[in-house]
Amino acid sequence: MTVLAGKVAFVTGASSGIGAAVAHALAARGVKLGLASRSAPDPGLADRVNISCDVRDPAQVEAAVAETVARFGGLDIVVANAGVGSWGDFEQTPLAELDEMVDVNIRGLFHTVRAALPHLRARGAADIITVASEAGRRGLPDEAAYVATKFAAVGFTRSLDHELRESGIRCCNVCPGGVATEFGMGRGLRTPDMPELDDMMRPEDVAETIIFALTRPRHYRMLEVAFRSMTEQSWG
């Protein structure tokens, strides 16, 4: 086992893609899991509680965190992964999609951290991982609203580092480039048959990066990890 064995993690957006890969990577290292998502997470993992949770609703998030803590006796790790995206000309983006990105990617992150913080503080040594994006580090065409929400996530987590470091809580932005998942399908970005998916990173790549950040010695912290596939264009 690893230094993570026996710890308790709460993962949002855990039913598919990066969230599911993170859940499997943590479980393989002996972590107990509270898995939150709007659809059912993978039932094949040990030491886990699956929780139906829409991060847009603070009451649901508080209940999901409370259920995780009640089941396992505390909380050591939060992986704030839940997110949605929409791509295309900003002026043509439906208002409902703009609202959804703000509600899930920003407010959902706020709700997750607020619900978890009292339990993380009680541990004296804990971690918050925000699954942001390379889009949160630079402006990109046809992604204005999505980029804005990821800029917000990056800035929020950087600021938390200042607030929480003395409490022993490390805060890290994990910022991948393109990852081959169902994320963005039918929202102006991806189709299942697009050849670009073959060259993108896999969810497991992101999960292993998160594991790397979580397993660093406690005397230092990683504030941001940015990475992309070898075939993805560099934007500066």
Rank of each mutant, 00 (worst) to 15 (best):
M1F: 09
M1A: 15
L4P: 04
A5E: 14
A9N: 02
G13K: 02
G13T: 10
G17R: 04
G17T: 01
V22E: 02
V22D: 01
A23P: 00
H24S: 11
H24L: 09
A25D: 14
A27P: 00
A28Y: 00
A28Q: 10
K32S: 07
S39L: 02
A40Y: 08
P41W: 03
D42C: 04
I51W: 13
P58K: 08
Q60R: 09
A66H: 05
E67D: 11
T68M: 07
V69A: 07
F72C: 08
D76K: 11
V79R: 02
A82D: 06
G83H: 02
G83R: 00
G85D: 10
G88E: 04
T93W: 06
P94V: 10
A96T: 13
L98C: 14
L98M: 14
E100A: 13
V102N: 00
D103E: 14
V104N: 09
V104M: 11
N105L: 04
N105D: 14
I106Y: 00
R107H: 14
R107T: 13
H111W: 12
T112L: 05
P118A: 03
G124N: 10
A126Y: 06
I129T: 05
V131L: 08
R137I: 12
P141Q: 12
E143I: 06
E143K: 05
A145H: 11
Y146C: 10
Y146A: 12
V147Y: 00
T149D: 12
K150P: 05
F151D: 04
A152T: 10
V154E: 12
G155A: 13
F156N: 08
R158I: 00
H162D: 15
R165N: 03
R165G: 02
I169V: 11
R170P: 02
R170A: 12
N173C: 15
P176R: 06
G177E: 04
T181E: 13
M185S: 07
R187E: 07
D193F: 03
M194V: 09
P195N: 04
P195H: 01
E196N: 08
L197V: 00
D198F: 05
M201Q: 09
M201K: 04
R202N: 06
D205H: 12
F212C: 11
L214H: 03
R218P: 07
M222Y: 08
F227M: 07
S229V: 06
E232N: 11
Q233E: 15
W235Y: 14
W235G: 12
